[in-house]
Amino acid sequence: MDIIDILLSASFWAAAIRIASPLIFATLGELICERAGVLNLGIEGIMVAGAFAGWMAVYSGTGLWTGVAVAMAVGMLFGLLHSTLTVPFGLSQHVVGLGVTLLATSATYYAYRLALPEVTSPPKIEAFQPYRIPGLADIPLIGPALFNQTPLTYAAFALVLIVSFTLYRTPLGLAVRAAGENPSAVAAQGLSVTGIRMGAVIIGSGFMAVGGAFLTMSAFDSFFFEMVNGRGWICIALVVFGAWRPGKALLGAILFAAFDALQIRVQQTSLGAAVPYQIFLMMPYVLSIVALVLVSRRAEVPAALMVPFNKGER
């Protein structure tokens, strides 16, 4: 099978959109944090916690959407921890972020072992099923790719619009962006920089957790250790690649996911048989680095990213 054939198949694009979905949630979450001026390296661990929490909730008997809400709440709790330490106390965002990732990951594994002490392979749940949108799903190529996905994927795309609208068309979004660009101006307006930044990190962390939950509740139907596997770090690269804009970040996520879906398919061709499979698995990470280098010249980093704000100082 040719690469052209792969690129023209609907199942390939359906896979790409599916792979992109968790990245979209988590990238938007990170983007919100960074737009407010806080780098959130807790993302990797928060995704692990979200993946477990949502799945565990459903396994314990709640509905799927309740599971998503549980995942989001758990993510927000870790966001509260992260932002309390980094915003009012102004601690190193690098150290706290890595600490939160370690804490969230190990607490998740601990909880998993306590909740399921006996099992050798994790139990499965009834995950989200694809929902065909009547009419739209019949469009050739685009239809099956975009309009025969699980509800959580539709939610990811809706979230791009919501976040985009909020950031650029509402006073709240203006305040968030200003907190990341010029916090003194925000304080001069009588607004609380601390409140805005903490709120952004808490909400953003919630979205990261939903991104993790997508893995256990929509892409697969079970929880595995190492299942997030660096996706959080890739999302941090996607935020930079998307120049801190939701729309561009969405395109980046889809591009990245398409590449990922492509490497899975090329592995099964004659070319793939000749090359060690590890080369293909490396590609997503290599691609992320290449993308960072390509956009580095035009990077529009939020001016106050990683700069703590303390009202006493001038």
Partner: peptide, 8 residues
């Protein structure tokens, strides 16, 4: 990000 991705 680059050093993290290099690990993988």
């Amino acid at each position: 990000v680059t050093t993290l991705l290099f690990n993988f």
